[in-house]
Amino acid sequence: MAEELVLDIKDLVVRYDTDAGSVKAVNGINLKLRRKRSIGLVGETGAGKTTTALAILNLVPEPAGVIKNGSILVDGKNILAMSESELQKTRGKGVSMIFQDPMTALNPVFTVGEQIAESIRIHEGVSEKEAMRRAVEMLEIVGIAANRVNDYPHQLSGGMKQRVVIAIALACRAKLLIADEPTTALDVTIQAQVLELIRSYREKYDTAMLLITHDLGIVAESCDEVAVMYAGNIVEYGTLEDVFNQTKHPYTEGLFNSLPNIIERRSKLTPIPGMVPDPTELPEGCVFAERCAYATDECGKTVQADQWLSDTHMVRCSRYCEPDFNIIRRIKT
């Protein structure tokens, strides 16, 4: 089993030291991902999803961002202990990433062909010409005509830019693909195409994927496992079945209940009350206690431990086994 692990994050802690204080972005998360599998990392903006992704590439923006603790094994090797040259070999080849905002993710002064060819040239040791030929191939795979290869980013539409960003990430057939909100910037019609594109490519090359999103629908569609993140903690973790149908954490419940219900259109949306805690001053005990309908006084004082319900299902909530605790899932997915 262990050798099949593509990604193994242990106790990852990331802080951003700013003038306003130390932002506790990621607070001791654990995450495992096996070959071919995909995991959805879900949570609100600011939950620490992108920071986690950047940590996997060891690209947490310096000097503010500091990885305080933990290890990130990619294919058995610790990213955080790698030398700069080892890191460069891993980035793009071992792990590649699709970035969130296609409008700013491409260098405006190089052609899209050059930008795709660059990673091929670095990792595959091929000639400039060969790299360009393969870049054209990649463009076609993501559905852009070969004659756009010499276009600059500003000549492409947002959707096309996102495809180019995807082409860059897929170019070297990395073992692990991190997709950070790959479809947020796109029209709904194109979203499905893009997801399908990623899926078929993963099937072909046995790529594992960490998908970051706040869209539970996308998770249901493309992931095997789900990790729900809140204020830098993974509060619930399990297979799609575990988390979607056996929801155990009140925050996960809140996420589902704040979705619009297509079947019962007249039902009201139920937003989670309150606000995400200030990441510079996280509460002492459970990070969700302030907003939690089930919280007791105890919850606010004690740090929650990971509770394993089964081999696959984890919840970070001490109340899940108590008799009066009963998650209400209003929507069936």
């Binding site: 070999k89 980035r91 793009g92 993710a105 491409l106 660059e118 670095i122």
Partner: peptide
Amino acid sequence: RTVRAKGV
């Protein structure tokens, strides 16, 4: 960041 993520 995109460029760095490529391993440049």
